[in-house]
């Protein structure tokens, strides 16, 4: 599995991805959380690794073993996720209630998405940020795409933010009376995820087979 393959990476963070993609708005909140935590934890890890590689290691957990790096990433990501959760609870209680148990799982998604990124390569900070942003956007796009398909077909509605006169929910006529409810279940989520992976694989294979796209994978 290539690490630049966001939907395939979704398999690893599957549980929250399936659970929060029933409504578009939940997927948006989840995406926001993942992007925020991913970016901040990446930056923090970058600084930490720079600090510890510059000097002699002062603590045992500063030694550059993979386990130590994982422990650091775990602590940093968990802390940031917990902060995001607390912030969400204070500022947007409804969203916090909708995400429920899946908000803490943002930590899992971020660990998976940020895998191998900070602290292992000696990349300049700017490239780290750009790389993490790219992964976050890829994750968000996949999640929102799945949520759009599942909510539009599975419930006949599209739930967004309430803004002014707009109530927050777009109702699709006809479909709302007899929606394809099966897509709203976990199985339907896996189905959409499968198709998304298939499409992205097909695109990347086509890009690899096409010599114009760089070095061909022979």
């Amino acid at each position: 599995m290539k690490s630049e393959d966001p939907p395939a990476l979704l398999f690893l963070g599957l549980c929250p991805a399936i659970a929060v993609s029933v409504r578009v708005i939940d997927a948006l909140w989840m995406s926001a959380g993942v992007m925020l935590v991913l970016l901040l934890s990446g930056l923090a890890m970058e600084l930490l690794s720079r600090e510890s590689s510059g000097n002699e290691a002062r603590h045992s957990f500063d030694r550059g073993s993979p386990a130590a790096r994982w422990m650091r990433a775990l602590v940093v990501t968990s802390f940031l996720t917990a902060s995001f959760e607390a912030g969400l609870l204070a500022l947007a209680p409804a969203a916090s209630a909708a995400l429920g148990i899946y908000a803490p799982l943002i930590a899992v998604n971020c660990l998976v998405l940020g895998r191998g990124m900070p602290g292992t390569h000696n990349l300049p900070t700017r490239r780290t940020v750009v790389g993490l942003l790219g992964r976050g956007i890829g994750f968000a796009a996949s999640l929102v795409a799945i949520a759009l398909v599942r909510e539009a077909l599975g419930a006949g509605t599209i739930t967004l933010f309430a803004l002014g006169g707009f109530g927050g929910t777009i109702v699709i006529p006809m479909l709302v009376e007899q929606p394809l409810r099966a897509l709203g279940f976990a199985g339907g989520g896996l189905l959409c995820l499968g198709y998304l992976v298939a499409v992205s694989r097909a695109i990347s294979r086509r890009a690899a087979a096409n010599p114009a796209g760089g070095e061909a994978a022979q």
Partner: peptide, 10 residues
């Protein structure tokens, strides 16, 4: 099964 899950009424 898809129909049973999606449209239990009809």
């Amino acid at each position: 099964v898809f129909a049973l899950l999606s449209w239990p009424g009809p």
